[in-house]
Design a protein around this nucleic acid. Structure first.
Length: 423
RNA sequence: GUGAGCGUAGCUCAACUGGUCAGAGCACUGGACUGUGGCUCCAGGGGUUGGGGGUUCAAGUCCCCUCGCUCACCCCA
């Protein structure tokens, strides 16, 4: 046998019935996000490499070793997007969307690419549903976004989720905290793991969410960011919590919640699942009040999030709450000649919006009924010698065996019947 | 990049310490039932046991290499 071709490592097919779950989740997100005034935008999958380097940060793992970067034929450095926010901000600035009344709210969905070692809940091509709100710094919009996420996740029936929030401060207050933290860590640096000693130089805040028990122990009374917030950040965070309380949205404060991307400021949040698997973050997001300026736009605060589709799909699949439907009709023609009548009926019914299938072979009624049953059809129509002679079609409802007849050209009532309406 | 585990039919998996072990279930196709499905029974197709090399009288089983998959670390959705 020839060697079979397979998708590249970390790239996967989504095939039925799984596709049905994807569609369900996307449909619900579209519906609910719309209720909150978010409009869909579609941005390219490829950007100039600089878009990501300047937003995500030069010294992050994503930029340093995870990007699919290549030169096009004219020698430009392009990159398959590793995340969505940078592209959306670029789009916002390029199209002058800041001239529209604030807030401007957008959502997007599509594949992201990172060259990582695949594992459970992590792929090289993975899908995100993301949303971004521009032009408003009021904490109300942070709360609104968390509320929207809450609606969405409970709408698709998920439980076992925790929402954690934090504020990582702004340009004014974070440096002070960073310094205090480094001073604290330095005093006992030998007690930390190798990774943490490395983190100390690169991103000391990361030490706080190390999983090694001894590190957790050693950093247990480290200074917390929330004690170092400036008045503005502190007030913003306090107000956000008030809004969440008022909307009865559950959350936990996690002063150790750090985001990996450089552009975050102020509010950050993460929604994690309690289900097994080490990739437990299903949603993550926060504020990025300076990024629009960095991209050459005006001063425009913003806040957004990204949902990991594969992780969500896995949780929804585990719950077995989405059922795959079957066709409304399975048409059986008992010989090739009757098929000429059959396909005419099929065309009409499909055009009227119904999912209809037909048996292709000239096999026995028995075997075709078996096919109809396995396809999960609601009704079977039979065209055979008796029916053609009498100018009518025989229908059978598979769930209860109820049978009857309709004129061969009475498409309207056929459609009603299949739709389970009264005829 | 680091570490561990695993590759047998389309899918899920059997085959005692190397000795008819190349099998079962599901799925698919057909039949029993010639115009009535779901249940049951029967039959059929489909695998050079991921690939290569080695040890042995004998390898799916042991050793080496390679490719692939999975999980974890790093990091992240």
């Amino acid at each position: 046998m020839k060697e079979r071709l397979r998708a590249p490592k970390g790239f996967q097919d989504v095939i039925p019935p799984k596709t049905f779950i994807w569609q369900h989740i996307e449909d619900r997100a579209r519906k609910i996000f719309k209720n909150y005034g978010f409009h869909e935008i579609r941005v390219p999958v490829v950007e100039h490499t600089d878009v990501f380097v300047r937003s995500i940060g030069e010294n992050t793992d994503i930029v340093e070793k995870e990007m699919y970067t290549f030169n096009d034929r004219a020698g430009r450095s392009l990159t398959l997007r590793p995340e969505g926010t940078a592209s959306v901000v670029r789009c916002y600035v390029q199209n002058g969307l800041y001239t529209m009344p604030a807030p401007q709210r957008y959502f997007y969905t599509g594949p992201m690419f990172r060259y990582e070692r695949p594992q459970k809940g992590r792929f090289r091509q993975f899908y995100q549903i993301g949303a971004e709100a521009f032009g408003v710094d009021a904490p109300y919009i942070d709360a609104e976004i968390l509320c929207m996420l809450n609606d969405f996740l409970s709408d698709i029936g998920l439980d076992g989720l925790n929402c954690e929030i934090n504020s990582i401060g702004c340009n004014k207050c974070r440096p002070g905290y960073r310094q205090a933290l480094k001073a604290y860590l330095l005093s006992g640096l030998d007690g930390y793991c190798e990774d943490c000693r490395r983190r100390y130089d690169i991103n000391p805040l990361r030490v706080l969410d190390c999983k090694v028990p001894s590190c957790i122990e050693a950093s247990s009374d480290a200074p917390v960011i929330t004690d170092y917030l400036c008045d503005d950040c502190s007030a913003h965070f306090r107000k956000l919590r008030k809004y969440l309380d008022s909307m009865e949205i559950k959350y936990e404060l996690n002063p150790r919640l750090v985001r990996g991307l450089d552009y975050y400021t102020g509010t950050t949040f993460e929604i994690t699942t309690v289900h097994p698997g080490s990739q437990n973050a299903v949603v993550a997001g926060g504020r990025y009040d300076k990024l629009v300026e960095e991209f050459g736009g005006p001063s425009a605060p913003a806040v957004g999030f990204a949902i990991g589709m594969e992780r969500l799909v896995e949780l929804v699949s585990d719950m077995d709450i989405v059922k795959e439907p079957g066709p409304g009709l399975f048409l059986i023609c008992l010989n090739e000649e009757y098929r000429l009548t059959g396909i005419r009926i099929l065309r009409k019914l499909r055009f009227s919006g119904l999912w209809c299938e037909m048996g292709f072979g000239a096999s026995s009624l028995r075997s075709q009924l078996k096919k109809a049953d396995r396809a999960g059809a609601r009704y079977v129509f039979i065209i055979g010698e008796d029916e053609i002679k009498a100018g009518r079609i025989k229908y059978r409802r598979l769930s209860n065996g109820e049978e009857g007849y309709l004129p061969l050209d009475d498409y309207e009532n056929m459609a009603r019947l299949i739709s389970d309406e009264r005829i």
